[in-house]
Amino acid sequence: MIKSIHSKQIILIGAVILLVAFLFTRDIKGLVKPKEDTTAAVPSAGQMPAQETAAINLTEVSTTGKNLLNASLAAEITSLENAFKSASEDKKAPAAKLLAQKWDDLEQTVPSALYLEIVATKEPTLNNWLVTGDKFLKAYDNTRDSLLQPALLQKANTAYTNAVAADSTSADAKTGLGITIVNGMGMPMQGIAMLMDVVKKDPKNLKANMSLGTFAIKSGQFDKAITRFNSIIAIKPTPDAYFYLATAYENLGKNEEAIDAYLKSKKLAANATLSKFIDEKVIALKTKK
Rank of each mutant, 00 (worst) to 15 (best):
P188K: 03
I77Q: 05
G220T: 01
L99E: 00
L274G: 01
Q51A: 15
A54M: 14
T273I: 11
A93S: 11
I56L: 14
Y262H: 06
P188R: 04
A173Q: 05
L252W: 04
A151S: 15
L147F: 08
A261S: 15
G65D: 02
Y249W: 11
K102F: 07
N142R: 14
S86V: 06
L147G: 12
G133F: 02
K66F: 05
Y140T: 00
Y242Q: 07
P94G: 07
D240T: 09
G46T: 13
K138H: 08
V61L: 09
K155E: 06
A83D: 12
W103F: 05
K236T: 09
T63A: 03
T78E: 15
K33A: 08
T59Q: 10
T59F: 05
A216I: 06
N157V: 07
P188W: 01
T158H: 07
I217M: 07
A269T: 06
I278E: 03
L19F: 11
Q190H: 12
E76T: 10
T121R: 08
A272N: 14
A96I: 03
F136C: 02
E250G: 05
A246V: 07
R228S: 10
N128S: 01
A41Y: 05
L153P: 02
R144W: 12
A113P: 07
V164T: 13
D141G: 14
Q47W: 01
S4F: 10
L12M: 08
K218I: 02
T273F: 12
G184W: 09
A45H: 09
V119P: 01
F136D: 04
K8C: 07
G178P: 07
A41M: 07
S4D: 12
D134E: 14
L31A: 13
N128D: 09
A216T: 01
A120I: 05
A139T: 01
A163F: 03
D172H: 05
T63F: 10
A258S: 14
A21L: 15
I28Q: 11
L106V: 04
K3T: 14
S112P: 08
G30E: 14
I17L: 15
L177S: 01
K138G: 11
Y160G: 00
E256A: 15
K236G: 00
Y115S: 04
K138N: 14
I179D: 05
A93I: 03
K264H: 07
L68K: 14
A45W: 05
N255Y: 15
I28P: 10
A95K: 01
T238C: 04
K33S: 11
A159E: 06
K174I: 00
N128G: 02
E250Q: 15
F222Q: 01
S265L: 04
